[in-house]
C-alpha cells in the first residue's frame, strides 16, 4: 500500500469521525443558541440513543433499518422530556442553577444506564451490509466509513432546509435572538424549545447508532468522551452557530485521526488533542471560529 492510499484511508477515517462529532455538536449548539444552556446531559442522550436502538433490534421484531429511525425518534422524545423535567421549571432561575441541573441530569442518566443496562459492555449488532471491507484502488475501507459522512451530509441538508425555510425554523432563529419579542409574535416558546431538544437528541442518536456500527462496544459511560469532544467542537466552531459546530466537528475528527496516523508516538495523547485545540482557540479567538460578536444598530 502506497503512502497516498494510506493517507486517503486516514482522511476517510477522519472525515467519518468528524461527521459523528459534528452531529453531536449540533445538539449542543442549538440548545445553547436558544436557552444559553450547555446541556451537559447531551452526551448521555447520545448513549441512550444507542442502547434504545440496540434493545429494539435485539428484543423486538422491528427490522434494523426501521429501528435506525425509531431509535432516534424515541431518543428525541427522551431529550424533550429531559428539558420539561430538568430545565423548564428552572427557566427563570439564575443560569448557574440550570447548568447544575444539567450536570445532575448527566450523572443521573449515566447511573440509570449502569443500573438498567449493566456495566458490562455489550456488542452492537451491526448489520453485515454496513460492516464489510471494500477495496477502492488498493485502499481497504469499511463501508460504514463511507456511509457515515453521506448520512451526515443528508441530515445537514435537511436541517439547513428546516432552519432557513420553515416557519418553525424561522421562529427558532427569532427565539435565539430575542425571547420576549418572539413571544409578542405569538410564537409558542415552549413548543419551539421542545422541537429544539427533539432535533438535537435525534441527531445525537443517529450519530450514536453510526458510532455503534463503527466501534461496536456499548457501555453506559460511552457518551462521556464523545459528548465532551463534541462540546469542544461546538465551542471551537463558535457556540450557538450550527455551521460552526459542523466545522468544529470535522476539525477535531480529522485532527485526532491525523495526529495518531502521522505521529504514532503521540497515540496516547489522542483524547488530549481536542483539549489542546480548545485552549488554543479560546486564547486566540474566544468567540470560536465562526462566532461573531454581535453588533446592534440603533
Amino acid at each position: 500500500m502506497g503512502n497516498l492510499s494510506l493517507f486517503l484511508q486516514h482522511l476517510t477515517n477522519g472525515i467519518s469521525l468528524g461527521s459523528l462529532y459534528a452531529l453531536i455538536a449540533i445538539g449542543y449548539t442549538m440548545v445553547y443558541g436558544i436557552l444559553r444552556l450547555i446541556n451537559f446531559a447531551h452526551g448521555d442522550i447520545f448513549m441512550l440513543g444507542v442502547y434504545l436502538t440496540y434493545f429494539g433490534i435485539l428484543y423486538t421484531a422491528i427490522p434494523w433499518w426501521l429501528m435506525f429511525i425509531i431509535g432516534p425518534a424515541l431518543t428525541g422524545v427522551v431529550g424533550l422530556l429531559l428539558e420539561r423535567v430538568a430545565y423548564k421549571p428552572l427557566r427563570d432561575s439564575p443560569r448557574i442553577t440550570i447548568l447544575i441541573s444539567a450536570i445532575g441530569a448527566s450523572f443521573l442518566l449515566q447511573n440509570l444506564g449502569i443500573v438498567l443496562f449493566g456495566g458490562r459492555p455489550r456488542a452492537f449488532p451491526v448489520p453485515h451490509i454496513l460492516n464489510h471491507v471494500v477495496k477502492v484502488r488498493g485502499v481497504s475501507i469499511n463501508v460504514i466509513t463511507f456511509i457515515i459522512p453521506v448520512v451526515t451530509i443528508l441530515l445537514l441538508i435537511g436541517l439547513n432546509y428546516f432552519i432557513t425555510k420553515t416557519k418553525t425554523g424561522m421562529a427558532m432563529r427569532a427565539l435565539s435572538r430575542d425571547y420576549e419579542t418572539a413571544s409578542l409574535m405569538g410564537i409558542d416558546i415552549n413548543r419551539i424549545i421542545s422541537v429544539t431538544f427533539f432535533m438535537g437528541s435525534f441527531l445525537a442518536a443517529v450519530g450514536g447508532i453510526m458510532w455503534g456500527a463503527r466501534y461496536p462496544q456499548l457501555m453506559p459511560l460511552m457518551g462521556v468522551m464523545p459528548g465532551l469532544k463534541s462540546f469542544i467542537a461546538a465551542v471551537v466552531g463558535g457556540i450557538g452557530n450550527i455551521a460552526g459546530a459542523v466545522a468544529g466537528g470535522f476539525l477535531l475528527g480529522l485532527g485526532e485521526i491525523m495526529l495518531v496516523a502521522l505521529l504514532p508516538r503521540l497515540t496516547g495523547y489522542r483524547d488530549a488533542f481536542a483539549f489542546v485545540v480548545l485552549i488554543i482557540i479560546l486564547l486566540f479567538k474566544p468567540a470560536g471560529l465562526m462566532g461573531s460578536t454581535q453588533t446592534e444598530k440603533v
Binding site: M170, A174, S176, R177, D178, E180, T181, M185, G186, I187
Partner: peptide, 25 residues
Amino acid sequence: TMVPEGRRVFANLTVEENLLLGAYT
C-alpha cells in the same frame, strides 16, 4: 399586538422574514 420599545427587530433575520414572523399566528 404590541410594538415594543426600542423596535426589537430580529437583526439576524431578513426584512421579509421579520414581516412573516409578524403573521406567525
